[in-house]
Each structure stands twice: as C-alpha cells, then as structure tokens.
Design a protein around this nucleic acid. Sequence first.
DNA 1: TACATCACG
DNA 2: GACGTACGTGATGTAC
Length: 954
Amino acid sequence: MDGAAPNAAAGSGATAETQPHLILIDGSGYIFRAFHALPPMTRPDGVPVNAVFGFSNMLGQFLTKHVGSHIAVVFDSSRKTFRSDFYPDYKAHRPEPPPELVPQFALIREATAAFGVAGVELDGFEADDLIAGYAKAFVETGGQVTVVSSDKDLMQLVRPGVQLLDPIKQKPIREPEVLEKFGVTPDKVVDVQALAGDSTDNVPGVPGIGIKTAAQLILEYGDLEGLLAAADKIKQPKRREALLANAELARISRRLVLLDENCPLPSPIDALLARAPEPTRLSGFLREQGFRSMLHRMGLDGDTAPESAPVSRPRQAFQLPGLQPEAAAPEPVSTEAAPFGPYETIADPAQLAGWVAKAQASGLLAIDTETDGLDALNANLVGISLAVAPGRACYIPLRHGPPPGTGDMLQEAPVAPPQMTQDQAVEALRPLLADPSVLKILHNAKFDLEVLGRAEHGALQLSPVDDTMLISYSMDAGRHGHGMDELSLRHLGHRPVSYDEVTGTGRARIPFTQVALDKATAYAAEDADVTLRLWQALRPKLLPQKSLALYEQVERRMVAVLREMELAGIKVDGAELARIGEDFTQRMATLEKQIHELAGKPFNVGSPKQLGEILFDEQKLPGGKRGKAGAWGTDAAVLEDLAARGHELPRQVINWRQLAKLKSTYVEGLAAQIDPRDRRVHTDFSMAITSTGRLSSTEPNLQNIPIRSEEGVRIRRAFVAEPGHVLLAADYSQIELRLLAHLADVPSLRDAFEKGEDIHSRTASDIFGLPRDQVDKEARRRAKTINFGIIYGMSAFGLAARLGISPGEARGIIDAYFSQYPGILEEMERLKSEARETGYVMTPFGRRLWIDGIQAKEQARRGNAERAAINAPFQGGAAEIIKRAMVRMPAALKAANLSARMLLQVHDELLFEVPQGEVTATAECVRSVMEGVAELRVPLKAEIGFGANWAEAH
DNA sequence: TACATCACG
DNA sequence: GACGTACGTGATGTAC
C-alpha cells in the first residue's frame, strides 16, 4: 500500500485535477482472485457470495486509494468472440466456471454499479479488446490511462500515457517491466507472443520456440513478417524448419493475441466519469448481500435494520491484503422461511419475460419439467416450472387439455385452459437456458435434459447445470433415497404435494394434461421451488464433506455421457429374437409334458408353491426347507442338489425354468422395448440408486443380458452393430481383485498383477503351498472361490457350502489365506470398524458409502451390514474407476478423430459401436483411457474384443 | 403388493 | 449357545 497511486505515477507531476486520468479495471482478474482467495460464503438465502464479497472489498479499497477522473470495470462478455471465428480452438479448453461462481457474475455487475463505477462489456469482444479501445481513445484526447491488471496479454498496450498496475503487488508496469518479461519493447510484444504461443489460451505459436528465443529472433529481424521473410536463411536447421512449416500458424497466433483497439466502445467516454457512490444504493446493496463488516467499515451502518450475516465457512485461513472475510456466523437461525406457494401460473409470453429477467438478475434458476410419462425419449412435454428464489416459482402449462367432466354433455365443447404455445415458451427460455452466467438447477437433470433436448420440444440446451439428486448421492449414497420428495422431507422439513394427490390413483387416475391448472401449478412449481431450496441446503455441504471433487469431476460430468448413451441405444435383431422365442416355446412344451408325467399330474410348473408341494409333500424327496412364508424352497440350488441325486423331475424343472426366464424377460420383454423408429433399445441408466456408486439400468435392464449359458449366448447374439460397424467390448480385468491387492497392499498379489500372471493360480500356490507350475484346476477353482468370497465378506460356512467341503476344512483354507495375506485380514477388520464408528466406508477415490444397519443389535442384520461394509469399497471403487474412464472417453475419442459411440456400461465393461475401419484405433484409444484413469499399486488392465454382435465381441 | 426366482457384474 | 451364513442390482410370474 505504498504511494504508487496511478495518477501520481503516470502523470509525472500532473494531478488528477489537472489531467484527465482513466482507470480501467480488468473485471475478470478481480473476480478470479476474489473467488479463489476466499472460502465459500453464502447469503442467508443460500446464494454463494464469496466472489461478490471479495470483489466489492477490492473495488472499495481501490477507490479509497486511487483517484482518477474516469473509471470503469471491464468485463468479458459471456459469448464467443471474433477470435473463435478464425481459430475455433482459441480458449476452447477453458473449463466452465465453477457452479458456485456462476450466480455471482450478475451480482458482481450489480456491485460495480452500486459503487458508482461504470461496468463495460460487449458481445463478441474480450475485456482486453475493450481496454485497448478505451485506452487508445483516451490517450488520443490527451489523457493518461492506468489498466489495473497483471495479465501479460495487456502489456502490448504500454506506451507513453498508458501503464499497467499490478493489483496484487500494487506495482506499476511500464516499459522496463515489459522488457524484463518479454525481452522486447511493448510494441513488439505481440510478435513475441505470436512465436511463443500461449498454452493456457490455446494460442499455438511455433513449436519449439519459447519467449526467450522469440525475443531474440524479433530483436534480430525487427518483427514477425521480417522474420518470416528471412526464415530460410536461419542457420539452426530445427528452428528454420519450424518457422517455415508454421509461418501461417504464427500469423494466426499474432492475430489472436493482438488486441483490437478499434473495437466499438459500448459507452461513450463521458459515461465513465468518476463519481462518488450513492450511499443509499451502496448500503442497500451491501445489506442485501449481508456484508455487515463492510457496511461498518464504510460507515454505512448507521440506522440499519437488523439482518443476518452471511454464513461463512472458512476452511483454511487465508486473507487478501487488507481484506477480511466476514466473521463466521452460525447456521441461519430459522428466520421464517418463505412459504411454499402460492405460485404463479404463466399463460402469456409477457408474463414469462418477467421471470426470465428475474433469473437473469439472480443468476440462479431451478427448473422442472412435467411430462405425460417417465420415459424421457418418448414422453411429451406438458409444462415447465421455474424457481428463481425460495418461494418464488411459477408453472408454464403447455399442453393442458380440458379437465375431465368439464364441458356440457349436451352442447358445450370442453375448453382447454389458456396457455402459451410451446414455441413461445421455448423461444423465451432458450437464451436463458444457454446463458453461461445463469446456473440451471435440476433434480435428476438427465431426464429433463433428454426431454427438453428433443427436437419436438425445441431442442433446448441447458448449461451450466447442477443436479440436486447427484449432489445428494455424492454425499449420502446408501444412507437414504435421493428422490425429491424424500430429500425435501429430510432436508427442508417439508412434504411436497404428491403426484398421486393431483392425478389420483388407480382407475381414477387422470393424465397430467388433464389436471386443472391451479392444482398443476401447486404441484409443478413447488417441485422447482423445492429443487432450488435443496440446492441451497446441500450444495454448500459438498466441500466440508469432502465430496466436491467426486461430484464435480465424476457425477456431474456423467450426465451428458449417459444421455448420449441412452440416446444412442443399441440395435437388437427382432426377427432373430422371434426365432429364438419359437424354439424356446416348443422346447418348453415338451419339457412341460415330461414334467407333468414325472409329477403324475398336471400343475403349473411356474408356481414354486405347487412345485414344492409335489416334490416335498407328495414325493417326499429329502432336503426340503421352508422359507419365510412357510413355503418349500425350490430354487435352483435345491433342485440342482436333488438332480445330482438322480431325480429326474427337478432336473427338467431346472431346464424349463431357464427357458421360461429367458423367454419372458429377454425374448418377449426385450422385443417389446425395441423402438420401432430405429430398431434399437434405449435403456435408462439410474445414477442414484445403488448403495455403492454403481449405475443401474432399467426399462429394459441392459446390464443383465444373458451370457453364462449356451441359450443365453443366443440372446446376446441378437444385439448387433449397424451395417458397416462392429461392436467393441472393453472389460476391466479382475478390477475388484486389483483393488483388493491395492487397498490391502498384498505383495504377492501385486507381483502377480504386475507380471500379468493368473491371479487365482497365484493365490492357489500361496495358500496351498504349491509350486506355481503345480497348481491344478481344482486348486485354482478353490482359490478363485475364496478370492471372490473375500471381497464379499464370506464366512467359513459360506465357503464350505460353495466348495462342497466341511466348514472345518473351509476354516483351514481361510486361515491359510489370511496368514499368507495378513494385510487383507487387517483391511477387512479396518473396514468393519470404520463402518461401525462412522457409519460409512470410503472408496479409494473418496466416495462416502453409508452402511445401513451396522449398529444393529440383531446379529444377523449387523452381520449383513458388516459384509456390505467389506464389499462396498471394492464394488464402489471399481464403479468409480469406470465412471472416470467414461467421462474422459468422449473427448479422447474426439481427439483421436474417432467416431465410435459408447452404448452401454455393464459395471466393468464398456460397449461401443465402431465403424469397421476404425476398430484398431478405437481399441487403442479405449484401452489407454481405461488403463490410464487411475494410478493404483497395481496396473489396470482392459481386455478388448469386437465382432458383429455382442456375443462375438467378448 | 410381497415373495421367490434368476439374469448380470 | 444361538443366530445366520457372499456383495450389488432389475424383471418376471405367482399368490395373496
């Protein structure tokens, strides 16, 4: 805080009074610093404000120290700039701003205005261009300019009358500083940058040339064109070749870095005149944000009404110089929350425009869609609800018809309620939904994105998006469900109107299109309201719960990936299914006849109850056990046991059941799911169902398509590639056992994986004390059973049952296993006690998996929970690994210029549809993504196959 | 709607 | 000494 006031520094004796002085603040730089320097802070209503706070503080501090005749904060406009027109990659790999920052952009513009400072931005131009434009114009009128920024791209502007001010070091940057940084005078900076490039902005430059070399060349040849003209005379062969080969790239680079000082100026210079902030406006703004300490510091808190301070969650102590975060305050004391309703019904575009403006201003928008079905690829859009703040929500009906029973039976035709057309709503919403400065919040975003993205619904695209279901799942998997109603009750203490309440149930149920608008609004708008409030309640918990990275990097990114997969679907040969079905039908009929003869009477083979009575009551076969309901158990293990004793009836029932299962579920069930438009089946992946972090798949479930039996393989063959394509399957090999070797750090298992040896043979050798080359099939089979059993928390009893040996023998094997691999025993115990003490276990990548029942008094229930606790990190860790591969896959394929589509995920397998000519390259790309996705103590391995159908691809 | 069964990893 | 006995899913048919 020395006296490096720009007016004194720039004006060489001149004062602010005598010479015009324009201060241009680089808004993005301020925002970025403020956001990253401060811990998360939220207003009492949950809106994040740490960047707003930091920005306001920095701007306020600046104004107290520096005086200029003119001042403006210059912002980047959200849209693309003219640079991407001639070089699409420019700044293309910039990550989206973090979701907590998104709603703050609008508030920061408000803050600027509240401080009485002009805010300047222009579509199609970067802040740097506007800064260049204003600087040039101002200098031409004889004024001085100070640009508050440390961005090196702005150094090209330094000249007599124009200087930069480093906002962190409070140090002016003039010609000597530029010379030090670039090795050339400011007027040559762009030529140096053209050669050196800039990886963060994707400015290519000339490969192999950095700033030092570039400066040397420019000093020698004057400028870029001079250098390129003389390039063939350069002595160093590498440098010469690089320059000759990349001359055009260098010219493009120069255009990219050269600021457009002739850009249009959105406000006249007079509009940038410095003026004192209007106290009521400033205090109003600060009070709205809850910035009490700042109000106080500025002496603006004289007669303020009591209000609550923002909730601050300082995580690590960090302060900007002269900038104090607000004191930590307790959770907002339940100031009476906004009521849930009444909500507004929107019938015309003018009304909607008001809501769009509100969302634009707040930067936050919760959205929910109402449809006439749960199948996102087929359901029709019935209405859209929006929420912009707690309690402020509306419903836009689009396809509501007359409610039932309206209209006169005799004459009057039933009348649909007033509503705007879908086109009107879609066009009003489209810019808002795409606006990168407005965060869209949804619950189960994948569904709404699929519905709104369909062409017949206007092909709406939403970005950026947060998903409250996934936020909840990231922290609380296994703890409870993640449906909106359940979360509302749990976190907001509010039971929303249920769907059944508005549509009725059973025979009396009416389609949502016929629900009267007042009821529909009460239901639909409330869902958007609840979604917004859930976001406010849950989103701030991600960081302290250490689940933020998982949510941001995995779950949030999975939405788009799964959406593409569901949309793609997989082709199923319906004619082949029909042939299989006929064959099964015939064979079942034959079997049924035999079974009835063996039973001595006809009965329903599909009825376990009737079968049990025949087997155990009538025929008195041994080994019958009754289940919960008192019925005889007749599952495959029981029947298999009887069959092994030579009984024919159970054998044939086993065969019949296999065919019945395949026929009903996979032949008929699947055929019914083929979409006639593309002859493909489109599953719905559920992202927040499992207790371990796995996906699940429904309608149809494409994660349990048969493969293990010969008959099953026939069904899998009906999953085919389009003509000219193949299916490519990539499986993680032994992923859970690799995680076991990693987590328990087992030297022998690590060694086996490292060397690519058969892991079960290694285990057999270790626990049975056999030399590696003397492990026979039976020993390997036993070792395999125990290896998998371990991951499932199996007991000696269970192992005995599986291996058909006595519990004593099984105990001996388990003892040998744990004495060979003591790290595994330790890890099992550690997981049980972690679950007991905390209620959860962690996956290797930081997902918290809650274990239900771990504290139960009933031994059986607790035993179940302990086994779940042992299994969860392995199953969950594997799920994490494949999800990470999936979120990386689309970009990797694109970068390799491959057009393969990812179709399915089956827990440790990814299935792709690949153009025939790209198979080898795709296999390599997929392998490298899958194997490179995590660094464990053992290597990851992906096994890849391909073929005309899914069976062949294995 | 509950249960049993069985398809997958 | 008894208890129960390998984790995680979803779809189907029967019986109530």
